[in-house]
Write a protein that binds this DNA or RNA. Structure first.
Lengths: 353, 353
DNA sequence: AGATCTCATAAAAACGTTTTCGCGCATAGT
DNA sequence: ACTATGCGCGAAAACGTTTTTATGAGATCT
């Protein structure tokens, strides 16, 4: 069964028909009598023929590829549990609609824009889902102005000026953060710190905004000194928290903008001999697997990561099909999960709330 | 800058040269005087031209795509920290050699074989890296018999009959497991259980073999009753461990074949009121992030997952280039990391190594 | 019986590149 | 002066499909 380069031509010869007939059979067109069909299929089988994708794409004008754009870095999306789940969600939809997944990742964020545009215009991908975690408006401008198809997944700024023109799937980062921090306030906390990623991350900004709004709701004055920059790694975050906790003994709660940072917070507190949640209450975000491994388990906001991928892909597929889309923006529901890391707060010798 | 369908033809017209000249300029051929080159580049820029990949691939015979094959399932590779890191390693190499990454994943393992072959033969991918975690020899047979290019990454059975003909990158699962279990034996453990994934996983079989060999080395009789099937999820594993520990009070150590199973073990032990490592010593595998989050931190075998991806990709690229490969099999070094989960064992009132 | 229609198929154009070939011209080697 | 050599470039073939157009044969209608 040596089949060096078997093309539709050989199949046609084998089946004693023309090239066009082979193509018609393979594409399931009408007007092909069963007898011919069988002869052709026999030849296909015998020669072990598989159509060439490049040629097919050339005439069809599409490669049936969906691009997934993100920045590849150690501390970032790629090694993030987030990434695997969102990919799984996207994959489920791609499979259903017969699309393939092309990974578009960069070690260097600066290549992102020009490469993404190139890939779209070259036809390597029909459309892209942007998972990139940093604010990067110029890419979006470019995509919009060139009429390229894209969906933002879990990463749009609510206040982005371009918001109206884009398609995106997200959760309510501002609102959910607001609720989480309000929860802390209701439990009596007054000195609440936020442990955040650098603000150039799309999500960080929103979660920060929610935090600020909650403080306002609680009538708590905002202290810039209670904003902790968690850096890019768990170690960075741990160190930053420790330093802050040593200087500011009055902090009683920390809102970490993702579970890994919450883990860092818990570890930092423990190393300082503080008890969680009795001395320091902690709230995380995302409900990663780590949330139930660290002790105490984390109170956190469960983000439906798989669905985020799935809905993003669904939206992009509709976009590619040219179907009309009723909702350009899809906000997925989350769940506030209360576990031990902020369940109680010792105030004057007894647990409150 | 509306540029509906600008092809090389338009660029040629704009620059007042022939199509072939444009192509020559873009491909950086010699014999193009600077003046012409500039004229062409000007036109390219002005028209915002990007060559069509399908056409390019058709003449070049390659799409410059590397396929990454794996099974997509909730409890499996995809949501596994393993996956993200190996992908990052592959990505770094792909970027370097100007290859793109095509994800080839299936919810249903049965599609894997036929789809993978199809994708290779259709030219959608030039070669594949197999991350699939199950033993699936028939796919490998097919790939070999059709002369398709592939590399197995971290997933080959050492005793596989086809081993000689394949290219793969792996760690020494048998040897490393052997060492880990010997470590337990040296510490005085006699009743050592193994918590493993179902044996149809490639890796599970090897780690099990290492476990058995260590028992033999230590002159410990093997008891099938001390083999615990961890199932596919953390909850499954936890339940299985609990049941076993309740029945077999004599177990003093558990070798878990990956860190998530080790976490399950620790949690199970704790829920039964047993102390780790005093009552039950635990060893994990992989050194996932969870290893230092669970308490006590896990003694484990650190697998260089990023490098696994990187070396696999390097090997595949060489294969694709047609370069000669000195080593078909690459075994990467690992590191046995001792942490608290098996640091000590109480014997007769004192700690023994 | 002649015109029209359907059916099954083949021939050929088209998709957008890369690459081979060849041509005209200038330069260099004898 | 006459052949090589090389340079710059255009024409055209090739890649492997899909799709449009064409065609001949048979069936159907009037």
């Amino acid at each position: 069964m040596r089949d060096n380069k078997v093309s539709i031509r050989e199949v046609a010869k084998e089946a004693n028909v023309s090239i066009s007939t082979v193509s018609r059979v393979l594409r399931n067109y009408k007007n092909v009598p069963p007898e011919t069909r069988e002869r052709v299929m026999g030849a296909v089988k015998k020669l072990n023929y598989v159509p060439n994708i490049a040629a097919q794409s050339l005439t069809q004008g599409s490669m049936r590829n969906i691009g997934i754009v993100f920045t590849r870095s150690t501390e970032n999306a790629f090694s993030n549990p987030f990434f695997a789940d969102v990919l799984r969600g996207i994959g489920s939809v791609a499979e259903k609609y017969d699309y393939y997944l092309q990974l578009i990742s960069f070690s260097d964020i600066n290549m992102e824009k020009e490469e993404t545009i190139k890939l779209l215009k070259s036809g390597r991908v029909d459309g892209v889902i942007l998972l990139s975690s940093r604010v990067y408006d110029s890419l979006i401008y470019e995509l919009l102005s060139q009429d390229l198809k894209f969906v933002l997944s879990g990463r749009v700024l609510e206040h982005n000026l371009l918001g109206e023109k884009m398609y995106y799937v997200n959760t309510d980062n501002i609102g959910d953060s607001y609720k989480a921090v309000c929860h802390l306030i209701k439990m009596g906390h007054k000195k609440i710190a936020i442990l955040n990623a650098p603000m150039d991350y799309v999500v960080s900004k929103d979660r920060y905004d929610g935090f600020r709004q909650a403080l306002m709701w609680g009538g708590i004055e905002h202290e810039p000194d209670l904003e902790i920059n968690g850096g890019y790694t768990l170690e960075d975050a741990k160190k930053a928290v420790k330093e802050k906790l040593m200087k500011r003994r009055d902090i009683t709660a920390i809102f970490a903008t993702d579970d890994m940072k919450a883990v860092a917070t818990v570890q930092a507190a423990k190393e300082l001999g503080l008890r969680v949640p009795e001395d320091i209450a902690v709230i995380g975000y995302n409900d990663f697997r780590e949330a139930t491994i660290v002790e105490p388990n984390l109170t956190t906001i469960r983000v439906p990561i798989y669905d985020l991928g799935k809905e993003s892909a669904n939206m992009l597929v509709k976009l590619l099909k040219g179907e009309e889309i009723k909702e350009r923006k899809k906000i997925l529901p989350t769940e506030f999960i209360i576990r031990e890391s902020c369940g109680f707060k010792m105030r004057g010798g007894k647990y409150v709330l």
